[in-house]
Design a protein around this nucleic acid. Structure first.
Lengths: 133, 133
DNA sequence: TCATGATGCGGGCATATACCCGTAAATCGG
DNA sequence: CCGATTTACGGGTATATGCCCGCATCATGA
């Protein structure tokens, strides 16, 4: 029979641990790793609609909307109405850019730490995992 | 420089996808993969305290408590007071055992599907990932 | 141009998760 | 045996996430 260990539970446990590691590292910047990731996605697609960001990140649109509202509350994003009046046009504020700049080296240090611990093969495999199934 | 791709974000995205896959597969049983995992942990450690389960699953104790209350609401678990009056003594109900029995083949089929897609090496690596860092 | 259908969102509802604080019970020292 | 410390929880607060429903706007075809 196949393994008794649930792949999904393993993945979920690993996700919790790694998220904690990154969140701890990013704490001085005032944002967590999910927010950091979202900010960077916005930066690379500015101005972007919620639906677009959701597609890129494989996140439910409503999740993106809520998460961005949290960032807006922190003063890191601005939400305007697009030409298409149905669309939200999301952009970073200056403070948002600043926060990314602050978080970047913290993130990078964590990346290196994780890369060292996991080893090159595992690290690479991890990066392709989301598209592997 | 190290990779531009965030290991944590990759892991989180993979977790979302895989969780969706398992949740969809388990849907007929009425529980999701997190609940299935928790039920099985309870089963293997019955009767267990919340703290104990939290340690085993590397979950915050308060999270365990809330999640088990959801299971209790579904009639799948019973929560009694232990000898130590501070402790909760968590056990499965008959319906809880029944639900595990229903979910088991659904879970197993998904395990096999995932295993096939990922390949043996990757699958094995995934299982050890939570303890890898 | 106007009815229809498609699209973009917000809000409601629910779960999973973490952290912190306060309370009650158990344990340990003196 | 009693006060101090430790332990086990519950509840509050907050984020992240998904699904569904309803509303407003846009696009399309007759």
């Amino acid at each position: 029979m196949t393994s008794d260990i649930c792949y999904c539970s393993s993945l979920r446990a690993a996700e919790r641990r790694m998220t904690r590691a990154y969140d701890d590292a990013l704490a001085p910047s005032g944002i967590n790793v999910a927010q950091f990731s979202l900010l960077r996605k916005i930066q690379r697609n500015e101005p972007a609609s919620l639906t677009r960001i959701g597609e890129i990140m494989d996140l439910d649109r409503s999740t993106v909307g809520r998460n961005i509202r949290v960032l807006a509350k922190l003063g890191l994003t601005e939400i305007a109405t697009g030409e298409d009046l149905r669309e939200s046009s999301v952009m970073l504020t200056e403070q948002g850019r600043q926060t990314i700049a602050t978080a970047l080296p913290l993130w990078q240090a964590t990346q290196e730490k994780i890369e060292t611990i996991l080893g090159g093969d595992m690290a690479k495999a991890l990066q392709t995992l989301p598209t592997a199934f």
